[in-house]
Write a protein that binds this DNA or RNA. Structure first.
Lengths: 121, 121
DNA sequence: CTTGCATCTCACATCGATGTCAGATCCTAC
DNA sequence: GTAGGATCTGACATCGATGTGAGATGCAAG
């Protein structure tokens, strides 16, 4: 598929697809396409993974390291950036904790300031 | 207290304290100090609140709206930006969900790629 | 072969919190 | 009154994902 197709399939702009390639997250071959990118069949799935990890706050640099594990579907990636994986996992849990704290703070305020409307979530 | 004192007390750089003031989050009076800022006693607490909300991913603009509720300790802030509060709360929960998803994804990978070392967290 | 849309590369802009530098002014201690 | 540290303002830099525009070229359909 070409870049426009992939963009339509994933909802990610061509600009970003090129950016992901530039960051080493996405591969395209350009044989006999006059310089135009051609993507493999699993490209949409890969882009999906990238988007998820980005949404989780991971950096493209980190994703570049982790992606082989995420994409590689098999048990053959035994020592696949396990250190980075653990590190990011820890960071993720820190972030979750921080957000949960903020959430209880805000919902506490909400309960205090608008007691009649707060149906304690 | 002066800006350097507040900076030391909170671990936040003078640059940022000025920035928070510029964003309307922090107040200082400058009477008879030759243009130098003077902060009230509760300033460190206020800065603490600001830092927490920033860490939660809230924007200074949003914090400016919410801060009166957060800082105002009493039940007198009845309708204090309740809409914004609810909105941010929802955004926060979305973000938490996203991060939790990413966490399980990563920890799943970790368990798969390094089964011997993963003590399922 | 022409027309029109897709794609290419390159570069600059944006947003938000934060750093840093420069030049001027102030306060405090001696 | 002078030296030195703190503070002032203002502007420019940074990081990372993303947008946008320009100018050139490619491809597919007529």
């Amino acid at each position: 598929m070409k870049i426009g197709d992939l963009a339509r399939a994933t909802g990610v702009s061509p600009r970003l697809l090129r950016y992901y390639e530039e960051q080493g997250l996405l591969t395209a071959h350009r044989a006999g396409s006059g310089g135009h990118r051609r993507y493999a069949e699993d490209a949409p799935a890969v882009v999906g993974h990238i988007r998820s990890l980005l949404a989780a706050g991971l950096t493209t640099r980190v994703i570049r390291e982790l992606l082989p594990c995420v994409v590689g579907p098999g048990p053959e990636f035994e020592h696949c950036a396990a250190g980075t994986l653990r590190e990011q996992l820890r960071g993720l849990e820190d972030k979750i904790t921080t957000l949960q704290d903020a959430r209880s703070a805000l919902s506490g305020i909400l309960a205090t300031t608008v007691p009649s409307e707060g149906h304690e979530g």
